[in-house]
Amino acid sequence: MRMSNRKKGNIIIFLFLTVLGTFMILPIYLAFVMSFKPVEELFVFPPKLYTLNPTFRNFSDMFEELSKSLKVPFSRYIFNSVFVSITATLLQCITSSMGAFVLAKCNFPAKKIINKIIVIALLYQSNVIYIMQYIVMSKLNMINTYWALILPLISSPMSLFLMKQSISQMPDSVIEAGKIDGANLFRICWQIIIPNQKPALMTVIIFAFQSSWNMQSGSFIYKENLKTLPTVIQQITASGISKTGISAAGSVFILLPPLIIFIAVRKNVVETMAHSGISG
């Protein structure tokens, strides 16, 4: 009796999630459809949920016309985005791995207060400090350089926090064993701890990549040849309805890399987030 109630409940849950999920995925589906629609199909009444003559025109237009009008080849924006995201992600992995290891497993003066500050700092990530960061960056003469895109992303309290929670699950005996073997902390971190932290590392990678890939850098960068994809796509979107197809193609183009990475590393992410709780 109880089992069958539960099964009935599961079916209701499944139906509910399917309906809601359809609404959630619909805009993304539309973005894909739009990006493959020829111009004459973009504005018809009533608007269609599919396309009769799919075309790559929007994508090729995106590459060609934009290069002409903005005087920088579109591939340059792609390079900027890829270069910035990969560099920032890699550096973020390195800084948060070492920092998290020390904060999770070593005892030293000021450790407690640093841990506290980092939990508070979780609040002040994202666009809330962009304006203040801008003042700092302009004092350091970093406006209009790659530095302005990469350096602020190197230290992420969220990545450090997630890594720390995950590393503190490892037994201390592993570290003691390393010390007996004569390894210093640096080697223990990189040769013993981090190789066992693949899920946490993958989580840091997906979050770091997402935030750097999607970053709107318009305020830090004015030089056309240093701009990244989201900034340029936003400019197209703002330039009006005539560019609708191109800007849909652009949105899809931006969405794909993080989506693919997320699908690939999803399992690891869930495993790491299992340690994300803030205690106390």
């Binding site: 920092g99 290891f101 700092a121 400090i129 203040m132 700092v136 190197i154 230290s155 902390l185």
Partner: peptide, 17 residues
């Protein structure tokens, strides 16, 4: 080992706030 994180954390998060 904590320095690389703290350096950029202080410059781009703590100081701005």
């Amino acid at each position: 080992m904590l320095m690389p994180f703290m350096l950029f954390f202080i410059i781009f998060t703590v100081i701005p706030v």
